[in-house]
Design a protein around this nucleic acid. Structure first.
Lengths: 154, 154
DNA sequence: TTACTTGCAAATGATTTGCTCTAAA
DNA sequence: TTTAGAGCAAATCATTTGCAAGTAA
C-alpha cells in the first residue's frame, strides 16, 4: 500500500487515523482547516480527538503527502499534495481553488542566481475575486479582504 | 507626506504609532513578527501597547504599505511592501530573505485562463536552505523544517 | 467638536503538550 | 514484546476585543 510505504520510509507507523485523514483530504476538493477535517473524520472514527488530527496532519505534511498553507490571516489549511499545483484565494470570501497550470520550475533557477539560498522548491499563490463574489458586487474589484471566511467556502 | 496621503485616502488618520511602525519596517531587512516590531517600536514609543502594534500592522496592510505573510507554521510576519518582491524561506532555520527578481506578471494571465477567478495579483515563495544552514550540515539538503525559528533569524 | 485611535486588561481560539493506555511491527 | 501513536484534558500563545480616555482633523 502506497501510504504505508511512504510513512514507513520515515519511521512512521501506519494507523487507522492516518489512513482516514488522508482519505478525507484526497476526497475533498476544498482546502479545509483542521476542524473541518476533524468533523469529517469523525464520521468514520467517532472517538478520534482533535489533537490526533493535528498530529496526523503534521505527520502527513512531514511525509510530503499533504501540504499545509495559510491564507490571509486565518488558521492553517491543508490539501492533498500528491500532484503539485498552485492556488488562487478569493480576497473577499477566502475561498481557495486549485490552479491547473504547469510548474514554473524555471523560476527556481532564476531565484537561485539572485540569492545565496539553495532553492528546493516554490509555491505560487494568486489572489483575486471568485466568480460568486464578482457577481455579488461587480464593483470594488479588490476591496478589503473579509475578516471571516464563510464556513461553506471551506 | 507620503504616508499621510496613503492613509488619508482610506479614511485612516495619521498618528505617531503608525509612522513609527512603518519606519521600523522600512528600516529593517529582516521579516519580523508583531512581537519583534513591538520591541523595536518601544524604543521610540515606550508606552505603546502590543494591541496597537497588531492594529497598526493591520491598517498598514489594508493600505497596501505592508505585506503580511506566514512561513511554515509560525506567527504572522510583516514586511515593507513599497516595492514588490518575492521571498525565500530557509526550511531549516526559518530565515526569510527577499528575492530580487522581476515580477512574473505573465503568470496571472495564464492563471486567469485556467480558473474562474478574476486575478488581481500573486505571490511567490521559494524554499530551500540558507547559506549558513548548508555550511552547518551540508547533508540532508531538504530535511524537516525546524519547529522553532531562531530569535536572531527574525 | 467629532470620530478615529490608543492603552490596558480580559477574552478568544487555534494549536500543542503531558500522561496513560492501546496497538502497530 | 517494544515503542510509537491515540485520547483526553489542561496548557500555551498569538491575536482580538471591550471600553474609557486621548487626539487628529
Amino acid at each position: 500500500m502506497e501510504l504505508r510505504e511512504q510513512l514507513g520510509e520515515r519511521g512512521y507507523r501506519m494507523t487507522k487515523p492516518r489512513q482516514a485523514i488522508l482519505d478525507v483530504l484526497r476526497a475533498t476538493c476544498c482546502h479545509p482547516d483542521a476542524n473541518w477535517v476533524y468533523d469529517e473524520v469523525r464520521k468514520t472514527i467517532p472517538h478520534i480527538s482533535l489533537a490526533t488530527v493535528y498530529r496526523t496532519l503534521d505527520v502527513l505534511a512531514q511525509a510530503g503527502l499533504v501540504r499545509q498553507f495559510h491564507c490571509h490571516g486565518g488558521q492553517a489549511r491543508y490539501d492533498d499534495a500528491s500532484q503539485p499545483h498552485y492556488h488562487v484565494v478569493c480576497q473577499r470570501c477566502g475561498q481557495v481553488a486549485d490552479v491547473p497550470m504547469p510548474s514554473q520550475a524555471a523560476l527556481e533557477a532564476e531565484a537561485a542566481r539572485s540569492t545565496s539560498y539553495a532553492i528546493a522548491g516554490h509555491h505560487i499563490e494568486f489572489y483575486g475575486l471568485c466568480q460568486a463574489c464578482r457577481e455579488r458586487d461587480p464593483a470594488s474589484p479588490a476591496g478589503r479582504p473579509e475578516q471571516e471566511i464563510a464556513r461553506e467556502s471551506l
